[in-house]
Computed example of a mutant assay.
Amino acid sequence: MKRLVVSLFALLAGTSFAMAEDAGCEAFKWPVTREQALFAAPPATPSGAPLAVGAAADLGLVPVEKAGFTLPPERAPAQGTFGAVASVEVPPDGAIQISLSGEAWVDVIQDGHAIKSAGYSGVKTCPAIRKSVRFKLTPGPATVQFSGAKKAELKVAVLTPE
């Protein structure tokens, strides 16, 4: 009987934990279900590679001092952290949403200028996604800089906002 009670408790605790994880992702200001699906198996992508709108990448980061930032990051990265630079082709409507699996700062640069974000949502209780940032840009090429990451890999999704 004692084993049954312990097993039942373990089952219920696991169910509550799974529900809590889902509830954590619901706390974002906008849905992140597309990112959750894309983050399941994103392709490995080195720093410097282009990012596609509508896709995710498992971005390989380098020590920040070797990242080759176009402009200094808006928030100075701490020593011992990681970063990357990537390019993206902004779609005709000019809106993109960049979502990250972990802690990192995101700067978007277009025409030589850092562009301020148009919206931000971050949640620490969602297991696969840490933050999502929206930008309103001009259609065409842009540079995306990631800095201050504590790990050498970061899943990144670039989408059009819903």
Rank of each mutant, 00 (worst) to 15 (best):
D22L: 14
E153M: 05
G14L: 12
P141H: 01
R134C: 00
P46T: 10
D93Q: 15
H113S: 14
S117P: 07
A152W: 00
P50D: 01
F39T: 08
G48M: 08
K66L: 14
V156K: 02
T81Q: 04
A41S: 15
Q110Y: 01
K124G: 15
P63Y: 11
L8T: 05
G80W: 10
Q110K: 04
A41Y: 06
P50K: 03
K66M: 07
A104G: 03
V108Y: 01
L100I: 08
D107W: 03
A118H: 01
V6N: 03
G83S: 05
F146V: 00
L51G: 01
W30G: 10
V156M: 08
M1L: 15
K2E: 13
A55N: 09
T138G: 07
A157Q: 04
A86H: 06
S47L: 02
E65G: 10
A84R: 06
D111C: 05
P43L: 05
A49F: 04
S132I: 13
A142E: 05
P73D: 00
G48L: 08
P92T: 10
R130N: 13
Q79G: 14
D93P: 09
R75E: 12
E21W: 11
L71N: 13
K131C: 10
L59T: 05
F146C: 01
E21T: 05
A78S: 13
Y120S: 08
A20F: 12
A18H: 04
A95K: 14
K155T: 04
G112N: 05
L71A: 11
P91L: 04
A27C: 08
E35R: 07
E153D: 13
P73R: 03
P31F: 07
A23R: 10
A20L: 11
G80I: 01
T15R: 12
W30F: 15
H113L: 14
A23G: 01
F39P: 03
A76W: 00
F82L: 07
P72V: 03
Q79I: 00
A118Y: 04
K150I: 01
K151A: 11
Q145M: 14
E153R: 13
E35F: 08
K151F: 03
P63Q: 11
E153P: 00
A40I: 13
P43I: 06
A20I: 06
G102P: 00
L11C: 09
A78H: 09
T143R: 06
S7V: 09
V133E: 14
L59Y: 02
V144C: 05
A37M: 13
R75Y: 06
T45A: 08
E89Y: 02
C126H: 09
R34L: 12
A18Q: 07
L159G: 00
P73H: 07
T81C: 04
T160Y: 02
F28C: 10
V32G: 05
P63R: 10
G14R: 08
P50I: 02
E153F: 06
M19V: 14
L100P: 01
A84W: 06
S47Y: 07
R34I: 11
E65R: 13
G48E: 06
V133Q: 15
L71M: 13
G60R: 11
R75N: 04
T160I: 09
E153V: 12
R34S: 15
S117E: 14
G119C: 03
P73A: 03
H113V: 09
P91Q: 07
P73E: 01
T15Y: 12
